[in-house]
Simulated scan of single mutants.
Amino acid sequence: MFQSDFGLKDGAVSAMKGVALGVSPDLGLYDLTHEIPAYNIWEAAYRLEQTAPYWPAGTVFVSVVDPGVGTTRRSVVMRSKTGHYFVTPDNGTLTLVAQSLGISEIREIDEAVNRRSQSGKSYTFHGRDVYAYTGARLAAGIISFAEVGKRLPDTVISIPFQSAQKNGNTISGMIPVLDIQYGNIWSNIPDSLIRSLPAAPGDSLNVSILHKDSLVYQQRIPLANTFGDVPEGKPLAYFNSLLQFSVALNMGNFAAAYNVSSGPEWNVRVSSVR
């Protein structure tokens, strides 16, 4: 399973897949996404967490969002407690899956062994030369997890972020990502926390969105089951496919309308109006 910020305009993704098939033509190669915004490690971390639980144990994820390529940052494989493998630079990409899936073991990739032949002079495409190659060898059973390299302490570099929490009648969280195709705002606040206000579809909620603690949006909006529960162009709050609190405009683009983006600097606050 491949993820990157390479896009599909050139041959980078194809080169990684070619390396993997060169290791074993029997491998199943799939794409998570190659449309991570350039250098956006946080979004890479989120997309892994969004996707990995739906894939079977033993799946190998190769995630390459690597602005530090060629530097001293570590190249690792993390095995989660759910039995998934993540091949990636240890630069924050593992922030969320390490927390939600748990760390079983982490190993540093030994590039003396696990690197594409005759690629040592290349410093800027480890996705092809190290990660795709190592991930394919691991997935094909050519190497065991122990043969990836030396075992490391069970910690990863993590990106700080606002976890979902309740304080009195107010719930706070962050906007980890946009539902980018439609401009909907996704938070990391689980439905159970919203329901504890208490709140249920049909109720109104006070919703505030902040960037670096500066207020960007504030309005009372209805909590709905789905978009068509409000008139076209009107705002609504809802629980997305991950059962997390989200905000949208029915048949509109909330993010564009209110200049909202995502990442650790974007936060949301929700309170009941009962």
Rank of each mutant, 00 (worst) to 15 (best):
residue 225 N to M: 12
residue 192 S to G: 13
residue 64 V to T: 10
residue 239 F to L: 15
residue 151 R to Y: 02
residue 135 G to R: 08
residue 140 A to D: 09
residue 75 S to F: 09
residue 142 I to G: 04
residue 14 S to K: 11
residue 176 P to E: 04
residue 122 S to W: 14
residue 162 Q to I: 10
residue 31 D to A: 06
residue 185 I to W: 12
residue 170 T to K: 15
residue 154 D to P: 03
residue 133 Y to W: 12
residue 74 R to K: 14
residue 163 S to A: 13
residue 14 S to C: 10
residue 58 G to T: 02
residue 228 G to M: 11
residue 121 K to F: 13
residue 65 V to F: 03
residue 231 P to R: 07
residue 117 S to Y: 13
residue 257 A to H: 09
residue 26 D to F: 08
residue 254 F to Q: 14
residue 6 F to L: 14
residue 10 D to P: 10
residue 228 G to W: 07
residue 177 V to C: 06
residue 139 A to N: 12
residue 103 I to Y: 00
residue 159 I to V: 11
residue 106 I to G: 02
residue 43 E to P: 02
residue 245 F to Q: 04
residue 48 L to N: 06
residue 242 L to G: 13
residue 187 S to H: 01
residue 106 I to Y: 11
residue 84 H to S: 02
residue 85 Y to Q: 05
residue 207 V to Q: 06
residue 53 P to R: 04
residue 171 I to L: 01
residue 101 L to M: 08
residue 51 T to C: 13
residue 246 S to Q: 02
residue 196 S to R: 13
residue 6 F to N: 03
residue 181 Q to C: 08
residue 91 N to E: 09
residue 44 A to T: 04
residue 213 D to W: 14
residue 161 F to K: 05
residue 32 L to C: 12
residue 213 D to S: 15
residue 123 Y to S: 10
residue 182 Y to P: 11
residue 170 T to N: 06
residue 267 N to I: 12
residue 207 V to Y: 11
residue 1 M to H: 15
residue 159 I to F: 01
residue 175 I to G: 05
residue 194 I to P: 01
residue 263 G to H: 04
residue 155 T to Y: 07
residue 157 I to C: 03
residue 268 V to Q: 09
residue 230 V to I: 15
residue 135 G to D: 11
residue 88 T to R: 05
residue 119 S to H: 03
residue 96 L to K: 09
residue 47 R to G: 01
residue 257 A to C: 03
residue 258 Y to N: 13
residue 168 G to H: 08
residue 185 I to M: 13
residue 13 V to Y: 05
residue 27 L to M: 03
residue 145 F to T: 05
residue 25 P to N: 12
residue 25 P to K: 14
residue 19 V to D: 02
residue 72 T to D: 11
residue 198 P to Y: 01
residue 240 N to M: 07
residue 227 F to N: 08
residue 48 L to Q: 11
residue 1 M to C: 13
residue 168 G to W: 14
residue 97 V to S: 01
residue 41 I to D: 08
residue 265 E to W: 10
residue 239 F to D: 01
residue 27 L to Y: 07
residue 245 F to V: 03
residue 237 A to G: 10
residue 230 V to D: 03
residue 23 V to K: 00
residue 138 L to C: 07
residue 216 V to A: 06
residue 247 V to Q: 00
residue 73 R to E: 03
residue 120 G to V: 03
residue 53 P to A: 02
residue 170 T to F: 04
residue 191 D to P: 00
residue 186 W to D: 10
residue 223 L to V: 09
residue 162 Q to L: 15
residue 216 V to P: 00
residue 229 D to T: 06
residue 6 F to Y: 14
residue 121 K to Y: 10
residue 138 L to T: 05
residue 83 G to H: 07
residue 249 L to A: 09
residue 209 I to T: 05
residue 176 P to R: 00
residue 269 R to D: 08
residue 34 H to D: 05
residue 102 G to K: 06
residue 90 D to W: 01
residue 160 P to M: 02
residue 31 D to W: 05
residue 160 P to W: 02
residue 262 S to D: 08
residue 148 V to E: 00
residue 220 R to S: 15
residue 81 K to Q: 14
residue 135 G to M: 00
residue 150 K to H: 12
residue 207 V to I: 15
residue 255 A to P: 04
residue 82 T to W: 12
residue 27 L to G: 09
residue 72 T to I: 10
residue 189 I to C: 03
residue 201 P to N: 03
residue 152 L to Y: 06
residue 227 F to P: 09
residue 100 S to A: 08
residue 156 V to Y: 06
residue 135 G to E: 14
residue 115 R to F: 04
residue 122 S to L: 08
residue 258 Y to M: 01
residue 146 A to L: 15
residue 182 Y to R: 06
